[in-house]
Design a binder for these strands. Structure first.
Lengths: 335, 335
DNA sequence: ATGAAAGCGCTAACAT
DNA sequence: ATGTTAGCGCTTTCAT
């Protein structure tokens, strides 16, 4: 593999001159043409590891999500990927598998590979002390960290916070206003922070609407469609006393609910209305199309990109910011 | 950041001893405990860039897919991610955005970051000569390359090939056997290799079933649900002469078709049967659930992992292999 | 099993 | 704008 020295020799300039031209830093130079030609002729490919080792900058942004293929995060990841690419950065995707200990691993890896910044988007977990410690070393090196998620931490990092609770309250109020009285909540794991917030929003909505909470109408479990499909059977057991509406912890769970309703010949929304959370791509296309609380994942991702680039360019991570987003209630066919 | 020298000094051994112990190469050594303790005390984190620069190995596997969040590839990517993680490797995901020129970029990036191997999973493109050239340099450095996709190339790399054509023929024959006569094909872009193969399979199926192809029953366009939903309107215009069945280029397109049928009060499968391709997670849960050709993405991904690890360990990329997979026809409610 | 020294390819710092 | 020198932190020789 040709090195920058060979390119420099070929072009008859010093290594530094070649390096600067190849980095795009110098635009008009009498050597520009000859250097580029030499590089092309020798098939020069920059060794990014060497550059990173020397400069401390890798042009890679570390990203932590619950699952690198979780559909609730793919839009987010895609926006990051494309926006950073335009600025010459790449993303290094890691997964915390919805577990705090795996998040420690993920952050460790990012540290090992010298990423220039870290973006954590995980509404699902508390923060492990070991994770906080690693993030502190990023902070101490003036590397930007953004947490997009409602994890509790006192770290001085930029935050983007989704108002889960208010959003679900809004949805429940809407259902109550349209005459629903027996409104159920089908959540995910009780430990999940976002699910707990959504449950709290559900309870607020119930009480604000002058209804009383019925424990028989609340269900917790895992986050899979399959599990939702199975669990909702309990809520639908008594055909003479169905819930009017089911608020699901997210869209995937809502799909499971709708599927089970179809299997039981329960009409959505005539017999039971269903509301999700996320607004996945598919929610507009399923039948019935899903009413849901839309998370502006694209906007949140853009916000992350802007903020990271700003912080990298100014080389400052002072005065952490907080941004709040309240999901929008989108009414389609299912409610 | 503590270096290995500081750890060695703290532990009272030479840098090399510390390095070996921290790399896990030595298990019983009188110095083991003291080195690990020193590392922990100093908060040592290995600098992977330095290690990579020196050794030429990064422990990173480069992966190219059409879109890093394309649902047809997420299972594949997830299996790679988790399986490689267990072996101490990380994946560097890049996207070719379904375009040959972007694939050149992606491969260039992987080269720059010194990945240890490359996995390309893209059924959608021809191979750019520039891409082939980059892959040749990987090959010349004995770095394994796997192409999982039906791209035409004479490069001596491991291949995994999906038998698109035979699979669709199988689906069409099934539809014909169940009495369908007017069978339509709703594809994606004509240029897409996989779509062309599926179209060829459709034509084979039609003629093998003693039917005649009707150009009015064939549609090409983009790969989005939205576009499928719009395009299928043409096929469904004449309510007195509907197609009996529609074979979609993939599951996402099938979802668009089913959605439009619902909007037009056309019953699936009673009025029109629908068959997809891929078997995305959601296809079991939508209503009606989708009959489709299942690609064994998980098995293909495992195959890639095994093959890559074998090649890395043996440090040989001789005698490229070819594996063929024929998708399985899964009959659910939609056909 | 351990140690000493060299060097991977690049860029920062300083000099011109 | 360009050249020179040194060194980022690790692993690979080669020695003991």
């Amino acid at each position: 593999m040709a090195t920058i020295y060979e390119v420099a020799t070929e072009a008859g300039v010093s290594p530094k001159t070649a390096a600067r031209i190849l980095a795009g830093g110098v635009k008009r130079s009498k050597n520009r043409e000859s250097v580029l030609q030499a590089a092309s002729k020798l098939g020069y490919v920059r060794n990014q590891q060497a550059a990173t080792l020397r400069s401390g900058r890798s042009n890679v942004i570390g990203v932590v999500v619950p699952g690198i293929t979780n559909p609730a995060y793919t839009r987010f990841v895609q926006v990051l990927h494309e926006a950073f690419l335009l600025e010459g950065y790449h993303i290094f995707l890691t997964s915390n598998f919805g577990r705090t200990d795996e998040q420690v691993h993920a952050l460790n890896t990012l540290q090992t590979y010298l990423v220039d910044a870290v973006i954590i988007n995980s509404a699902e977990n508390e923060m492990d002390p070991a994770s906080e410690k690693i993030l502190e070393t990023f902070i101490s090196k003036t590397k930007p960290v953004i947490i997009a998620g409602n994890i509790q931490t006192s770290l001085p990092v930029d935050r983007i916070i989704i108002q889960n609770q208010d959003a679900v309250t809004k949805a429940v109020s809407y259902l109550a206003k349209t005459g629903k009285k027996r409104i159920a909540f089908l959540g995910g794991p009780k430990e999940h922070y976002a699910i707990r917030e959504r449950y709290d929003g559900y309870r607020d909505g119930i009480s604000q609407s002058g209804l009383t909470e019925d424990p028989a109408l609340v269900s917790f479990g895992t986050l899979s469609m399959e599990d939702a499909r199975n669990r909702v059977g309990d809520l639908l057991r008594d055909r003479n006393n169905l819930p009017d509406a089911i608020v699901a912890g997210n869209d995937l769970l809502a799909y499971g609910v709708i599927r089970r309703c179809a299997e039981l010949n329960i009409r959505v929304p005539e017999d039971v209305a269903v509301v999700g959370f996320d607004d996945l791509d598919f929610s507009r296309f399923c039948t019935p199309s899903l009413s849901t609380l839309r998370q502006p994942k694209e906007r949140i991702a853009s916000e992350c990109v802007q903020q990271i680039l700003k912080r990298i360019k100014s080389n400052s991570i002072k005065d952490p910011t907080q941004l709040f987003y309240e999901p929008e209630l989108i009414i389609r066919e299912s409610a």
